[in-house]
Computed example of a mutant assay.
Amino acid sequence: MRHLTFAQIACGSAMVIALTFVALFLAPEASGPAVALIAVAALVLGAVTAVVVRARGHAAAPVRRPAPATPERPGARV
């Protein structure tokens, strides 16, 4: 398995921070367990984001095949 690139780590980290702020903004009086649940959910979604960025970034390149060889015909001009 390849290591994560800087872009993947940045996207995942940004997702964790954004989700945590949004969730805590929507529930400002959250209890301790609720805050822990929000943090864990944000970390999971950040990891999923990093994996999705990896999957999209490493799409299979099209295979180039050489042109088929044409048999030479006597008297044919090219």
Rank of each mutant, 00 (worst) to 15 (best):
V40R: 12
S13K: 01
P33C: 02
P28T: 07
L26R: 10
P33Y: 03
V48S: 04
L26N: 10
A10H: 04
L43D: 02
M15S: 13
A61S: 09
F6S: 13
P62M: 03
A47C: 06
I9P: 02
F25I: 05
A34R: 12
P62R: 09
R64Q: 04
V53S: 04
Q8F: 06
A7M: 11
A55F: 01
A41R: 02
G57T: 03
V35H: 11
F25Q: 10
G57P: 00
G12V: 04
A67N: 07
S31N: 11
M1H: 15
L26C: 07
V48Y: 09
A30I: 01
H3D: 11
L19P: 01
F6E: 14
P28C: 05
R56C: 13
S31H: 07
A76T: 09
M1R: 14
A76V: 10
V51T: 07
A55E: 03
A36L: 13
P74R: 07
R64C: 00
A50W: 00
R2A: 09
S13L: 14
S13D: 06
A30P: 06
R73P: 00
A23D: 08
L4G: 06
A39P: 04
R54W: 01
P68W: 01
A47Q: 05
M15D: 12
I9R: 14
A67T: 04
G32V: 06
E72C: 01
L19R: 14
G12R: 06
L19H: 04
A67Y: 08
L24C: 06
V53I: 08
C11G: 15
A30N: 08
